[in-house]
Deep mutational scan, measured.
Amino acid sequence: PKDQAKKEIEKALRNGDEEKAKRLAKKYGISDDDWKELKKRVS
Rank of each mutant, 00 (worst) to 15 (best):
K7D: 11
L24K: 01
K2S: 14
D32I: 09
E18K: 04
K36V: 12
K26P: 02
A5W: 14
A21I: 01
L13G: 00
K11F: 07
K20S: 11
Q4F: 14
D32R: 04
K22S: 08
D34L: 06
S31M: 04
I9F: 01
G29I: 03
D17Y: 10
R41M: 14
K26V: 12
E37G: 04
I9N: 00
V42F: 09
Y28W: 07
R23G: 08
D32A: 08
R23V: 09
K20C: 10
L24I: 09
I30M: 13
K26G: 06
L38R: 01
E10N: 03
K27M: 14
K11A: 15
G16T: 02
Q4M: 12
K11Y: 06
A5F: 11
E37P: 00
W35F: 15
K7L: 13
K6I: 15
N15P: 00
E19P: 07
D32C: 09
E10Y: 08
D34C: 08
A12I: 06
D17W: 09
L38F: 03
K6Y: 15
W35S: 01
K2N: 14
D3E: 14
K22G: 04
E18F: 11
V42I: 13
K27N: 07
K11N: 14
Y28L: 10
K39R: 09
E10R: 04
P1N: 15
A21D: 00
E18L: 11
A12W: 06
K40A: 12
K39N: 08
G16H: 07
K27V: 09
S31E: 05
I9Q: 00
L13D: 00
D32V: 08
K26L: 11
D34P: 00
E18H: 09
E37Y: 04
E10I: 15
K26R: 10
S31Y: 02
K22L: 14
N15S: 13
R14S: 05
R14I: 08
E37L: 05
K6N: 07
K27D: 15
V42Y: 07
I30N: 00
A21G: 03
K20T: 14
P1S: 14
D17H: 09
D17R: 04
K20D: 08
K40R: 12
R14T: 04
K39V: 15
L38T: 03
K36H: 12
K11S: 11
D3I: 11
R23I: 12
A12P: 00
S43R: 10
D33H: 10
K40Q: 14
K36E: 15
E19D: 11
E18W: 12
L38V: 07
E10M: 14
A25M: 05
S31K: 03
K36G: 07
K22W: 06
K39T: 08
Y28C: 05
D3M: 11
I9S: 00
V42P: 02
E8V: 05
S43C: 07
N15M: 13
K27H: 12
L13V: 02
K6T: 10
N15I: 09
K7V: 11
P1G: 14
A21P: 00
K26D: 15
A5L: 09
E37N: 06
E8S: 05
A21L: 02
D34K: 03
K11W: 05
D33C: 04
A25I: 02
D32Q: 07
N15Y: 07
G16F: 04
A12Y: 06
N15K: 10
W35N: 01
K7C: 09
Y28Q: 03
K27I: 14
L13K: 00
W35R: 01
W35T: 02
R14G: 04
E37W: 04
S43A: 14
G29D: 12
E37T: 03
R23E: 15
W35C: 03
K26S: 09
E10C: 03
S31Q: 04
G29H: 08
S31D: 09
K22I: 13
K39D: 03
I9H: 00
I9E: 00
D34R: 02
L13T: 00
A25E: 01
E8R: 07
A5V: 12
K7W: 10
A5K: 07
E37M: 06
L13Q: 01
D33R: 06
G16W: 03
K11H: 14
E18A: 06
R14A: 08
S43M: 15
G29P: 02
G29L: 06
I30L: 14
D32F: 12
D3Y: 11
V42L: 10
D34E: 15
V42R: 02
K2W: 10
P1T: 13
I9D: 00
K39Y: 06
S43F: 12
D3N: 10
E10D: 03
D3H: 11
D33V: 09
N15F: 06
D33L: 08
K11P: 00
R14N: 04
I9C: 03
K22R: 13
K27C: 14
L24W: 02
L24S: 01
G29A: 09
L24G: 00
P1W: 12
A5T: 04
D33G: 07
R23A: 14
K6L: 15
K20G: 13
K27P: 00
E8H: 06
L38S: 02
E8A: 08
K2R: 12
K40G: 08
K26Q: 12
A25L: 03
I30E: 01
A25V: 05
R41T: 11
L24C: 02
N15Q: 13
G29C: 11
K40S: 13
E19N: 08
I9M: 03
G16Q: 04
R41G: 10
R14K: 08
G29R: 05
K20E: 15
D34G: 03
R41F: 05
Q4W: 15
I30D: 01
K40W: 07
K6W: 15
V42T: 08
D32E: 14
K36N: 15
R14Q: 07
W35K: 01
E10Q: 05
D17G: 02
K36I: 14
E18Q: 07
E37Q: 07
Q4E: 13
A5R: 08
D34T: 06
G29E: 12
K20R: 11
L38Y: 02
W35E: 01
G29W: 03
D17F: 10
